[in-house]
Design a protein around this nucleic acid. Structure first.
Lengths: 236, 236
DNA sequence: GAGTGGTCTAGACCACTGT
DNA sequence: CAGTGGTCTAGACCACTCC
């Protein structure tokens, strides 16, 4: 005689989140409207305020709500879409597809960075690496990396033919923050050769700069083969 | 005679997060290593377990730690980079740059979706809209949108010359989940004309499909003008 | 079965901010 | 100054999973 559990009726903070979302969708609370404070909501829904807080915090992180002390919580007027993009760890991404991963170093030169790189990495002396990551015999992505030799002097004597710079840096150098940018750019010649496409063809490029506190560590641009897609689920 | 507050010594859950990060960077805990359980850490650091939980949860979300019940918490072997990308709300993005926002509808046709769209949106009848969003007199992005008329029949009689489909849909149609994909694609002719570039040139394209539960609502592809970058900060 | 993280609760104090 | 969210605490129970 137990009541058959309703299939979709989350409890706890997820339940509160669902209920708030339901009311927003049903226009009980319209964009720009304030919603009740945490204490009132907790009382109404029969949960502790901590639980309401957790739910509302998640919704604010997702861009659905805007919260400010004293003035309270409102439904966002322009629910900004946010997506979490995972930066590929190439070996894993390729092996996850059941393909053999191959890595080949194409260039490793100590050289002063050109102006376009200085903008990302400072004008310290730098190591320029270019490497090809392949899925089986198919070129997958070209890694075009600059390592700041003032921040990471040990890089100069490291043999990047054996271990990819990404894996080496991960274990060796602390970094505290980073920036990424995604764009479509005309492919540099060396990368175009490796990818077997015409030089200058525009391809998907993902740039990442990482810093240890304020000291730039490395700038890397991934040149993806034509057809590659960076995919993700939208938050909420 | 008060002790001068140490400039960087966060308290509470942020403090726990900092301390855990410090130990990972200092290799006290190496990639793949297990770290103490929440109760022990809480006792050691002199905080409640709830506080430790909050800190470790955030680090797990950021991809730094991996947590599993019973087996405990480990330092991720491959700290996946994650970045939160904000999907542009075009009007706001343009006006935030101090430029006048302009919107022009280029095409609005009820038509059966071609196979490439069916893959995203089902083979229901659809409304195809193409619109140009400009910053001042400079073409900024072309919106290439398909609206599922079975899910959103009201769209057929709506005048999208006056209000952009994005703003109309936001207020009208609930959606519960979505997918995005970013790629470099040869620009469709109509978009190329509007952006004043050669047809077929490859440009940055952002696809977004949204669903109301399981029913596809809309598929939109944004064709960005050459040079556009999607930027974001790396998490942590 | 036992150990771990996941979550909830009730209460408390604090930080920020609009009036 | 007062109201709101932000956080901490101590304790508890539960869910999952490895042994």
């Amino acid at each position: 005689m137990t009541a058959p559990a309703r299939p979709q009726a989350p409890q706890g903070w997820r339940g509160v989140r669902s209920e708030v979302l339901r009311r927003i969708r049903a226009r009980v609370w319209a964009p720009g409207d304030p919603i009740p404070n945490e204490a009132d909501l907790a009382a109404e829904l029969g949960v502790a305020r901590t639980t309401v807080n957790r739910a509302l915090r998640e919704l604010a992180t997702a861009g659905i709500l805007e919260r400010r002390r004293r003035s309270g919580t409102r439904v966002a007027r322009h629910p900004v879409g946010r997506a979490v993009v995972e930066i590929p760890v190439l070996r894993q991404e390729i092996e996850a597809q059941g393909l053999p991963y191959a890595y080949r170093l194409l260039r490793a030169v100590r050289t002063p960075p050109p102006p376009s790189i200085v903008a990302h990495l400072s004008d310290d002396p730098a190591l320029h690496l270019v490497a090809l990551h392949s899925a089986g015999r198919v070129p997958y992505v070209v890694e075009d990396r600059w390592i700041n030799l003032t921040t990471v002097p040990e890089a100069e004597t490291q043999d990047f033919g054996a271990i990819s710079a990404n894996e080496w840096l991960l274990g060796r150098v602390p970094f505290t923050r980073g920036e990424i940018a995604i764009s479509a750019l005309p492919c540099m010649m060396l990368a175009a050769q490796a990818l077997k496409i015409p030089a200058g063809r525009e391809v998907l490029a993902l740039d990442r700069t990482t810093f240890d506190d304020r000291r730039p560590v490395t700038f890397v641009r991934l040149w993806f083969r034509p057809g590659h897609r960076i995919e993700s689920a939208l938050m909420l």
